[in-house]
């Protein structure tokens, strides 16, 4: 990793509009390859605007191509998503603890993604596919608000067509043109026919959704330490110094963003989410 305090300038190589408010950028990292683990994030900085934490959504085997999927929600992300190929962003990182893909070897692995949660889980999924022989069943369960809000729809289709993976998508609402499942993503988990003794769950999405996913996994008998969630908190330093991202006894940037449910489940109960 480069100096964690100093942003490395990288040029936007390509920009893809994913949904009405979300874009995927590929940055040229060939001069300073970003070797990251699935689930890690970087701090993206734009002169005059500020800095935001964004998960890497690309392929961990391609450190020269740094990929991020960003939703325009506020003062920094809105203008950043307007940038075009050739524009430059400053990059610090990667930071944070990854998804437990190594610990999951030999197990069945279920990724449960809600909305933008597909972005941080995508590198984990690509890792599972690239090392398919090291895992048992691999399942990707995706929930979105409507079919138009689905991230990476073409890739979902291609992954679904493989014979060695199980990919299911559900939406909260749809018009008559949609023939797939409708309902919350936890239903896909109910239907998955999992063997709790050999399953690991990794989930990312809105906190309420992750709470219901964890609850359903626990109900099926999957132990809390085999359920991982990824958290978001406001960040500044991203290296465990400033305390901005404090959450209970943890700093999300240093101790997370990926946490075991055994460590953080009780906090969800307190938060009332």
């Amino acid at each position: 990793m480069n100096d964690p305090w100093v942003p490395v300038p990288m040029t936007i190589r390509s920009r893809r509009q994913e949904t009405s408010d979300t874009v995927t950028f590929e940055l040229d990292a060939s001069a300073a390859p970003v070797r990251f683990r699935p689930g890690q994030f970087t701090m993206l900085w734009r002169y005059g605007l500020g800095e935001v934490a964004i998960s890497v959504s690309g392929d961990p085997r391609e450190p020269e191509r740094l990929v991020h999927t960003i939703r325009a929600v506020g003062a920094v992300t809105r203008p950043i998503t307007q940038l075009r190929p050739g524009d430059v962003l400053g990059v610090r990182g990667p930071f944070g603890r990854p998804w437990p893909v190594d610990e999951a070897e030999g197990s069945d692995v279920v990724l449960v993604a809600g909305g933008l949660g597909m972005a941080p889980l995508r590198p984990a999924w690509l890792h599972l596919l690239a090392n398919r022989e090291r895992y048992g069943r691999v399942l990707l369960l995706v929930g979105a608000r409507t079919p138009a809000d689905l991230l990476f729809p073409d890739q979902l289709g291609a992954w679904r067509a493989r014979f060695d993976t199980e990919v299911q998508v559900t939406v909260d609402r749809a018009d008559a043109g949609w023939r797939g499942p409708i309902g919350v993503v936890t239903r896909l988990l109910e239907r998955a026919g999992l063997d709790p003794a050999r399953t690991r769950v990794m989930t990312c999405g809105p906190e309420v959704m992750m709470k219901f996913v964890a609850r359903e996994a626990l109900r099926q008998g999957i132990p809390a330490d085999r359920i991982a969630v990824s958290m978001e908190r406001n960040m500044q330093c991203a290296i465990g110094v400033c305390g901005h991202c404090q959450w209970g006894a943890d700093f999300v940037c240093r101790d997370g963003p990926v946490f075991g449910w055994d460590r953080v489940g009780a906090r969800f109960a307190v938060a009332g989410v």
Binding site: D21, V73, G115
Partner: peptide, 9 residues
């Protein structure tokens, strides 16, 4: 859970 409309930005 659906009533939360969790994916609303």
């Amino acid at each position: 859970l659906q009533a939360h409309d969790v994916f609303r930005v």
